[in-house]
Write a protein that binds this DNA or RNA. Structure first.
Lengths: 171, 171
DNA sequence: TTCAATATTTTGCGCCGTCAACCATTGTTA
DNA sequence: TAACAATGGTTGACGGCGCAAAATATTGAA
């Protein structure tokens, strides 16, 4: 008879597939990002800052968006600040808070990195799928994301309202 | 005019979506797995052993399958062995190699863990999608997996040929 | 046989991120 | 106003994993 052991359940392989793809892509991407001096988490934080109206987000919002802990964010931002890609600025309205602000150098760095990174993304991920397959994939992922991480958009509204902490590059 | 900055490229958000889903699921799963005394990597290794014909795989094959390094596998197997879920056995035909062999306790543990784990998988992942959506997702993931990790099935054939190192539970 | 070249696993060291404890600030309640 | 819980962030101790070198076993050639 066919196997009916629980450890062969299809749902487990569905998880496994997701994990393998994630790890595989991460590994493929790591080399080139490393050449730009960035890790996956560092890139993500720079990207999120760059996409925010004034290029600034509070530490705790970064934590919520990235599913790093706040202490993890502290450390990543420490490194980025040491590298001159980010600066910390205190928050006028709530002196407990701290803005992480993308510097010009940071924006340049992430732009340069992404420029090459996109080749890899295309080569190992999006470019492998037909537009229909890609859309179906993203639709499914979005459904899952919205239930497992509904908080992934924290802080954007506040940051837009806040006054910029450094000369922003937005004209 | 609309934004055309490179850091807003859709392909980046396609990566981001995958990463967010992976992290979100990992977090959701961690609590219950932790209650069974297993981490994600430990579960994966136990699963792969349990699915192999004689419940045994060589360390290097585990490394290839999991995209841990061999040293990572050494450490995970160390813990699993300390917990009595796995034993090491030397390889007759090539005494450089080492089999990691799932014990009966290991099979019980992983079975019990998976039994509950599947509820979470259903609740946060597979159960959120229609059968069509799930199939489309898996199809796309399989395409990407096959190009970024073609080596993910290492060692299964050899393990099936090798003689079992402990009383196997296969009748 | 002996010695170099190769293959498999383990170990030393370091980085990265979590957890828990901590300090500073805010808001609330009296 | 004082007291105190709640919030935001940082720090120290710790564990997991990767990298590279070491330890062990195997193969091939002189």
């Amino acid at each position: 008879m066919a196997t009916t052991r629980i450890i062969d359940d299809d749902r487990l392989t569905a998880v496994g597939l997701l994990v393998e793809v994630h790890r595989g892509l991460t590994n493929k991407f790591a080399a080139r990002l490393g050449r730009h001096g960035l890790s996956e988490n560092e890139l993500e934080i720079l990207l999120r800052l760059g996409r925010t109206p004034n290029c600034q987000l509070r530490m705790s919002d970064l934590a919520a968006q990235t599913s790093l802990t706040t202490s993890g964010v502290t450390r990543v931002v420490d490194r980025l600040e040491r590298a001159g890609l980010v600066v910390r600025a205190s928050c006028d309205t709530d002196r407990r808070g701290t803005w992480a602000v993308l510097t010009d150098a940071g924006l340049e760095r992430v732009t340069a990195a992404v420029e090459e990174h996109l080749e890899d993304v295309d080569r190992w991920y999006t470019g492998l799928l037909t537009p229909e397959q890609l859309n179906a994939l993203l639709e499914a992922l979005r459904i899952v994301r919205d239930t497992v991480r509904p908080e992934a958009v924290a802080g954007v509204a506040e940051a837009a309202r806040a006054r910029p902490r450094i000369a922003a590059t937005s004209p």
